[in-house]
Design a protein around this nucleic acid. Structure first.
Lengths: 354, 354
DNA sequence: ATGAAAGCGCTAACAG
DNA sequence: CTGTTAGCGCTTTCAT
């Protein structure tokens, strides 16, 4: 454990001032001579500028934070891979946190990031806009991915100050394509189109009693579902798990048992899809003979199921990559929301209603 | 974006010196009076000590780095969740990197961490011991998880200096239980026992031509496999993918086609198991009727397969948690290797040889 | 018990 | 074009 050379060491060894070294290394002006000498000495000393010094000086950490609900969920794994790929090509570090879809943990992690002076953050938010106000007020550039924070105090009339105003999206007016991105820096999938396509597909197959199995943060998807199935929504057919696999299973199982008349279900995420398959099997419901299933997220194992699962694919890796780009370019342009397309991939888990 | 209060602000507002504030906040000695006042002022000012200043002063970043091959692989997702859980309870940040099982990227990421002065690292290593020498020499505390770096220059006689000497494990002598942990700080699964149990199980079912489908970093598993199947190992039955899903599929498919006489395969990881299922289906081989399959890693979707997959379960989350504990306690005791048990979970993907 | 002061390694004025 | 200097926010002797 030998201690690293500092900029001062390099300066002395090269017979120049520290400022010159700093300039050379960050591409400032310097005579070719000096530049070369400094570079040579730096290389020779194996000098690595310390991010510590630079960060303190600039009062900010480089890189970015990344907050996801659960890395065990393959979709978030894909998203994370995208973020990491972009960060790597920029040579920036990524500080990771897993929130477990719990607003409190999320708030703690935000606090931790603030303490680290991480001022760029990509998040799949769990808490509502109130959770996010501190981060924004502290000057963080935050890009939301996969979903937006719910608006706080929505039922109490005018929304409280904070990010709420930014979150106001178009109020889901009559189907307009292409979708208008929200005004918050964000990378989302076109949930509405994805769900609508799925529901239409099921209806085309003759299904009328279609259920939605959702999880935390799936409100845009449920909204789209309600819109797609039309007016009298059978509320018993819209159920939610809390994010854990157990609760997802319980929700799925409960749904199948309480409403044996349903003929198709749309799972709002891959963990819920997994639960649906498991619950169906346990109850001896055969897919797609007894019940058709469409799952949000295309994950590798969707193809391994018997039958292979029909899915609404969203580009997880791309979403992560784009989000990282947005958050890194935040100085350049005021980033706006991005909406990425989804795709219905028809495999074998849906059949005609019978 | 209001700027945060500094320790100086607190000191002034409380009418004390900065040193006192520092002491109070880090649990040093101070009169109850002073302590209370400082605390009150700090709370009132919403003061958060800046990690930047502290880190620079102490010439090290808190927290830890985490390097995994691929977050899209559910096992590493579990591992990461474990690490994050431990880090969170310690309030420490985690800097994440994904290596893609590529030693070069790994080396780059190590460089990045060094630049950040991250001096604790948990890694699922891709490169050999040479890749890791710089990190160790720079004074990093590194805990390996899931596997150890291969020894460099092993074929050229005496191993080169570096971490090589630390890596020397017991040379797989005749089966001794319990397994002796290596002398490197590490958290590993008991691969040998896991593989041996699996092979014995298959043999008990009458299988004689058993193949091993491996990936990067599976050398301990292959070694165990060779040991378990005994002397004349049919080398054609031991094949490798490079880590990507495509190459895993190619390897599996090639294996099935070149050796239609095999009756069972052990997949060294869940990505390879996935590939095996896919390849078998593509070739119209039925599991377990035509070929039995055991996969390393118990992942949620193993149960969804038809038939559900018999697996060698290893405690991914625990491994991550323990590794994080080790790396955090590194100041206290010199951490040694830990070996965690595996478990053969029999489901439906193995049948009698026929 | 407490304050003053010295940096940690770096960048950004500001002079020369 | 280049060197000097002043901190960034914090911990830590060292006096008091």
């Amino acid at each position: 454990m030998e201690k690293r050379a500092t900029i001062k060491d390099v300066a002395e060894a090269a017979g120049v001032g520290v400022a010159t070294v700093s300039r050379v290394l960050s591409g400032g002006s310097a005579s070719p001579q000096t530049r070369e000498r400094v570079l040579a000495v730096a290389a020779q000393l194996d000098y690595r500028p310390s991010a510590l010094g630079r960060n303190l000086r600039q009062r900010r950490t480089g890189g970015m934070g990344l907050l996801v609900p659960d890395l065990t969920d393959t979709f978030y794994g894909q998203l994370a891979e995208g973020v990491l790929a972009c960060a790597r090509s920029a040579g920036e570090p990524v500080v990771l946190g897993s929130t477990g879809d719990d607003p409190e943990q999320e708030a703690d992690l935000i606090g931790m990031l603030l303490e680290q002076s991480v001022d760029r953050l990509i998040a799949v938010p769990s808490g509502d806009s109130d959770t996010w106000t501190p981060a924004v007020r502290a000057g963080m550039t935050v890009v939301f991915a996969d979903r937006l924070p719910a608006m706080a105090g929505t039922e109490t009339g005018p929304a409280a100050a904070g990010v709420n105003d930014l979150l106001r999206m178009d109020g889901l007016p009559a189907a307009a394509t292409p979708p208008r991105p929200p005004d918050v820096p964000s990378v989302l999938a076109d949930d509405r189109a994805g769900i609508r396509t799925a529901v239409r597909y099921l209806r085309g197959l003759g299904h009328r009693r279609i259920a939605f199995l959702g999880g935390p943060g799936h409100d845009r998807r449920v909204a789209a579902f309600r819109e797609a199935v039309g007016a009298p929504v059978d509320e018993e057919l819209v159920v939610f798990g809390t994010g854990s696999r157990d609760s997802a299973y319980a929700a799925a199982s409960g749904l199948f048992q309480s409403r044996p008349d349903l003929s198709a279900v749309v799972a709002g995420g891959n963990v819920l899809g997994e639960a649906a398959v498991l619950a169906a099997r346990e109850l001896d419901l055969r897919v797609p003979r007894d019940v058709s299933l469409i799952m949000y997220d295309d994950v590798p194992w969707a193809e391994l199921c018997a039958p292979p699962l029909t899915v609404i694919a969203q580009p997880g890796r791309d979403m992560g990559y784009r989000a990282a780009e947005l958050v890194l370019r935040s100085g350049t342009r005021r980033p706006r929301g991005i909406v990425l397309p989804t795709e219905l991939i028809i495999r074998g888990s849906c059949g005609p209603h019978r």
